[in-house]
Amino acid sequence: MKRFFSLLLISAVFFGLVSVPVFAEPSSNQSVIKPDKVEYTTDSAGNIYPVFYFSDNTKALAFMKQRQQERQQDLAFSSNSVNSALANSVSYFGNVEYDFTNTFMANHTNATQTMSTTIQRQHTTTATATATAAFQKFFQLQIGVSYAYTYSYSHTFNLSVPANKKGLITTYNNTDVYNAAYSGVSFSVYRPTNIEGADIYIVDIDFPET
């Protein structure tokens, strides 16, 4: 049944934006914020992204903060799990959403507009401490891939923005995180992948741009 629904969803998205009702999930936490509705759209590369609709900017900001907190928890867990042992080591922590940027499209007219924007990003390997040349060589020997990696990204988004509303596209990279200890220093390495993600929002025209 799940496979059938997935195929149905992909088929619907292929032909255009598909609307999906938001069902309340069983949870003991009644403060979880839900969007007014969720649709799905594709970019120029055929990637599928959610479109979250909000009629209230305060609720939209709370929802974004909620998602940001979840992501920060992943990053905090990564940092806290670094082994401070003196022995040199590198271990794979996992994949996290990382390196965010926002792109806005405002529709100040009284009619729905199809708006287009091309987002270009470049992600490079970073670390929470100085990664010396010796460590980078050690990293490659331990993991089997080079430490230094750069991923460049350029996709076009076509978004149907309702009258007096604003479209917000938040893009990020699905980044591989490694925990390392080298020369008595413990730190994390964030190595980008070629998988880019995005959240798309439809909000009121006066939504703050940050």
Rank of each mutant, 00 (worst) to 15 (best):
S89Q: 03
N107H: 04
D43N: 11
V189R: 00
E97K: 10
S81E: 08
Q69Y: 11
M115I: 03
Y149F: 09
K2W: 15
Y53F: 13
A127T: 00
A111G: 06
V22D: 03
G184Y: 02
M115N: 06
F207V: 11
T112V: 09
N88I: 05
A163M: 05
D43F: 01
R71K: 11
L159S: 04
N173V: 13
G197P: 12
I202P: 01
V90K: 02
V51Q: 02
T132I: 05
K59L: 12
L141N: 12
I200K: 00
I205L: 12
Y153Q: 05
A87M: 13
A24D: 09
S183R: 07
S183Q: 10
N57K: 13
F5K: 15
E25S: 10
Q72N: 14
R67F: 03
T125F: 00
Q140Y: 01
K65T: 15
F15Q: 06
T42A: 11
T193I: 15
D74A: 07
G184T: 04
A111F: 11
G167V: 03
A76C: 11
S188I: 05
T103G: 09
H108C: 09
V161K: 01
V22F: 06
I195V: 15
F15S: 09
E39F: 05
L75D: 06
P50W: 05
P26N: 09
F187H: 08
T117R: 07
T150N: 02
T193E: 09
K165T: 02
L86D: 10
M1Y: 07
Y190D: 02
K37A: 06
Q113L: 14
K137C: 03
A148T: 08
A62P: 04
F138N: 00
P192Q: 12
Y201E: 05
K37P: 03
R121Q: 15
Q30R: 12
Q120P: 10
A85Y: 02
